[in-house]
């Protein structure tokens, strides 16, 4: 059923090696990441779990080129990105990476549809094509009826689904999600999990950072972090419902 094993590397779409990140200097130095190696295969869903402050967000920011590592390498689709300039990184994010944040980070003054179409516009698509794509994506996340609503009129779960639709706008190679359910209640978490699961099924490569075991449980692979390093890796197989009855309190 469940096995702890190291994975064979299958053409990793995203790869990090010896990744280190330090903040501050002197006695105030913080080792947010301390030598991390990671390979993510195409179509794989990797969950990174760890307590608050263990370096999860830092890892995600480095993988997505939002920050540059103090040491180590990041490769995306066979291209080394840790040394790229801000502009090149921005272009890369535009086409290859979709971000999902705990705080949703939607633009408050834009409607759901306008938020979703923004990356396409930034990537230079025509307004019409961008709008069409936004409509498609909102349909996919089940929010077509909310397209013209402002974020303030949406529930937390709906906001996060809009943010996920936005992340998918330019068909990114990898979607990086930082605590996507961190601000959500149980029911909204389930909605977002359903959506992420459908992405996984559709073959989207996903890296999800979370301290919620429920989110982690839907991944193909689970990595645990502590104090800026990986402490263990678990491969989760999908399929059998196992001894669910027993877990539910149905006794033998």
């Amino acid at each position: 059923m469940d096995t702890v094993e190291s994975l064979p590397i299958v053409s990793p779409i995203l790869r990090a090696s010896g990744l280190r990140m330090r903040y501050g200097q002197g006695s105030g130095i913080v080792h947010a990441l301390d030598g991390v190696d990671l390979d993510v295969a195409t179509g794989e869903t990797v969950a990174v779990m760890g307590a608050s402050g263990s370096g999860k967000s830092t890892l995600l920011h480095l993988l997505g080129g939002l920050e540059r590592p103090s040491a180590g390498e990041v490769w995306l689709a066979g291209r080394r990105i840790d040394g790229l300039g801000e502009t090149a990184l921005a272009r890369l994010r535009r086409t290859a990476i979709g971000f999902v944040f705990q705080a949703f980070h939607l633009m408050d003054e834009l409607t759901a549809a306008e938020n979703v179409e923004l990356p396409a516009l930034l990537a230079g698509q025509s307004p019409r094509a961008a709008r069409r794509r936004a409509a498609e994506l909102l349909e996919r996340v089940g929010l077509s009826h909310r397209a013209e609503h402002l974020p303030s009129a949406l529930s937390g779960g709906e906001r996060q689904r809009v943010a996920i639709a936005r992340a998918l706008s330019n068909e990114p190679l990898v979607v990086l999600a930082d605590e996507p359910t961190g601000n959500l209640d149980s029911a909204a978490t389930l909605d977002v999990l359903r959506l992420l699961d459908s992405l996984r099924t559709a073959g989207q490569t996903l890296v999800i950072v979370t301290h919620d075991a429920r989110v982690a449980a839907t991944a193909d692979r689970l990595i645990s972090m502590r104090d800026g390093g990986f402490v263990e890796e678990t491969r989760l197989t999908h399929g059998s419902t196992g001894r669910l009855g027993e877990l539910a309190g149905l006794e033998g």
């Binding site: 059923m1 469940d2 149980s186 389930l190 909605d191 999990l193 359903r194 699961d197 075991a213 429920r214 982690a216 449980a217 839907t218 689970l222 678990t234 989760l236 999908h238 059998s240 419902t241 196992g242 001894r243 669910l244 877990l247 539910a248």
Partner: peptide, 26 residues
Amino acid sequence: LAGLAAAQRAALAEPADSTAGLLLEG
């Protein structure tokens, strides 16, 4: 964790308003 994974996946497979889904959420 494995149990949780199984239960979570079963929960995801249930339609949104199913009675059994509530049990799985529990």
